[in-house]
Computed example of a mutant assay.
Amino acid sequence: MLQPIDIHKKLIEIRSKQTNSINTLSWVQTIFDEIDVQQDSVLVRLLKSPINRRQNFFNIDKVSTDAIFHISQIEKICVDYRLRFLDTKYFKGDYPQEVIAKINKLEEEHNTVLDGFKIIAPSKLFTLKEADDPLLFAPMGNGYYYLIHKWGRDLHPLRKAKFWAIKNVENLLFAVLFASILGTFITKNLFYGDMSNFGHIAVLFLFYVKGIIGMFFFYWIASGKNFSAYCWTSRYNKIS
Rank of each mutant, 00 (worst) to 15 (best):
G193T: 00
I71Q: 07
A202T: 13
D132M: 14
I181G: 13
F198N: 05
Q97M: 02
R153P: 06
I120P: 03
T24F: 00
P139A: 02
L177G: 04
V44E: 14
N142T: 07
Q38T: 09
N56I: 07
K124P: 02
T187R: 10
I213V: 15
V176H: 02
I71S: 08
K17I: 06
N237T: 11
I148C: 01
R53W: 08
F57I: 10
F58E: 10
K124G: 12
Y219T: 08
T187C: 08
I31H: 06
L190V: 14
Q97I: 14
I120N: 01
R84V: 02
M215I: 13
H8V: 15
N237R: 09
F58H: 05
A222N: 04
A179P: 00
A179D: 13
L173T: 10
D87R: 03
L46H: 03
Y230C: 07
I213P: 06
V209S: 03
I12D: 08
L173C: 09
I22G: 00
I120R: 06
V37A: 15
S26H: 11
Y145R: 03
N226R: 14
T184E: 06
T112M: 03
K162T: 11
S49R: 01
Q3F: 14
L2E: 14
E34I: 09
N226A: 13
F137C: 07
Y90G: 00
A175N: 07
N168K: 13
R53E: 15
L173Q: 09
L125Y: 07
V44Y: 14
V37Q: 14
I60W: 06
K124N: 15
Q38F: 08
N237S: 07
V203A: 06
R45E: 10
T19Y: 11
F198S: 11
R84L: 00
Q18S: 10
S223A: 15
E170A: 08
K17W: 04
M1E: 01
F91K: 02
A175T: 07
D115Q: 09
W164R: 04
D80P: 01
G152F: 05
L128W: 10
K102H: 07
R84N: 09
L177N: 05
F205N: 05
R159V: 05
K9L: 15
Q18Y: 11
Q18M: 12
A161S: 03
Q38D: 11
S223E: 15
L147M: 02
H149Q: 09
N56Q: 01
I212W: 08
H200K: 05
L86T: 03
S228K: 05
A131E: 15
R54M: 08
F207D: 09
I119R: 01
I22A: 00
A179C: 11
T233Q: 11
Y219L: 11
L46D: 04
R54T: 12
I239E: 14
W164Y: 12
E130S: 13
R54L: 12
F91E: 01
I212K: 10
K210G: 06
N20G: 08
R159W: 08
I74G: 05
T19H: 07
T19N: 08
K129Y: 02
